[in-house]
Simulated scan of single mutants.
Amino acid sequence: MSVPAPPGDQQPTGRPDGAGRDPWAPPPPGAEPVGPAPYPVVAPWGAPQPRNGMGISALVLGFTGVVLAAFIVLFWLAWLPAVLALIFGGIGISQARKGVATNRGMALAGVLLGGLGLLISTASLIFTVVLVDKAIDHARTEIKEAKASAQASRKAEAAAEKARHLAFGETYTFSDGLKVTVGKPVPFTPDEFANGHAEGNKAIEVTVTVVNTGEKRVRIKTGLPDVSDADGASAELVIDGSGRQKVLDGYVLPGRTMVGAYAFSLPPKAAGRAEVEFSPDAMELDDAYWSGRLGH
C-alpha cells in the first residue's frame, strides 16, 4: 500500500501560477507572455543624423551658377558657384553611397547644374571674347578709315589751296560757275584829282575778267579786289575822275562776260611784286590769289 506524499511536497500540475517563479526569468518555451505588450524600441539618444548639407549646398550653388551664367554681363561670376556645386555634389553623392546621406538625387542635380553653369559660362566667355575682338577690329578699321579720310581731306584741302594760288593771267573757276582771270597789272597814271595816291608811289591798274560758265545768272556781290604789295601790306585804292575804273557789280548772265578795272597805289620800295585777292562772293566763296612780278 503506497503512502501519499505530503501536501507540501506536491508539484503543481498544468499552468504555473507564478507564485514561486523568478519574476525576472524569461517565460518557459511555449508560454504566452503575461501582462501588457512591451513599448516600441526607441533609438538611443545621439544616433547619427543624415548628412544632407553637401547635396543641398550643391543644388543651391548649381542653380546660382546657371542663373549667373545666363546673363552675359555676369558670366564671369558663375564659375565659382558652379565649381563649388561640382565639388559639394560629388561629396554628397559619395556620402549617399556610404549611407550617411539620403539626398543623392539632390546632390546629383547640383552636379548637373554646376556642369551646366560652367558650360554656359565658358560659352559666354568665348562669345564675349569673339565679340570684343570684332569690336576691336571694327574700331581699328574705323580709326584707319578716319585717318585715311583725314589725310585725303588734308590733301584735298592742300590741293584746293594750291589751286587757288595762281599767276597773273591764269584762270580760276569758282563753285558758282564764274571763271575769273586777273591780268598782269599795268602802270596807271592818276589825274590831278586822284584820291589815294601819294606822290612818289607807283600806281598800277588791275583788270578782273569774269565769265559765267553756268546755266543760271550769277550775281557778283563783292567785286572789289584786295591788292598787297611785295611786303604784304595792303595797297590803297586809287579813285580819280578819269572814269577808267569800273567796279564789278550786278548779275552775269550765262555765257556773258563782265570786266572790272581798278587802280591801286604801291610804295616805291614795295612795287616790284603784287598779289591780288578776289572772290565774286566773299561771304560764300573762298578767295583766289593771283601774284607775280611787276614790270617797269
Rank of each mutant, 00 (worst) to 15 (best):
A109L: 08
H165S: 09
E142A: 15
A139V: 05
A107R: 12
H165P: 01
T141S: 13
A160C: 01
E142W: 11
T173H: 03
H138N: 14
D137Y: 05
A146I: 10
A107L: 12
R104N: 07
G110E: 12
Q95R: 12
V130P: 01
A146R: 15
S149A: 14
K98T: 02
L118D: 09
A152F: 07
K98R: 14
A135G: 10
Q95S: 03
R104P: 03
L118Y: 06
G117P: 02
T141I: 02
R164S: 12
N103A: 05
A146Q: 15
F127Y: 12
T102N: 13
T173A: 04
T128N: 09
K98C: 00
E157A: 15
A156K: 14
S124V: 00
A107M: 11
K147I: 05
S149M: 08
T141A: 14
A139Q: 14
T102Y: 03
G110F: 11
S175D: 14
A107K: 12
K98N: 06
A101W: 04
I120F: 06
E161Q: 14
A158I: 01
L116Q: 07
A163R: 14
L125I: 00
D133G: 02
A152W: 09
G169I: 09
A139K: 12
L166M: 14
L119Q: 05
K144F: 08
G99Y: 12
S121Q: 12
I120W: 03
S175Y: 04
S149F: 08
I91N: 08
K147G: 02
A152Y: 08
G99P: 05
A160M: 05
A150G: 07
V132N: 02
M106L: 10
M106W: 06
I120Y: 02
G99M: 13
A159G: 02
V132K: 01
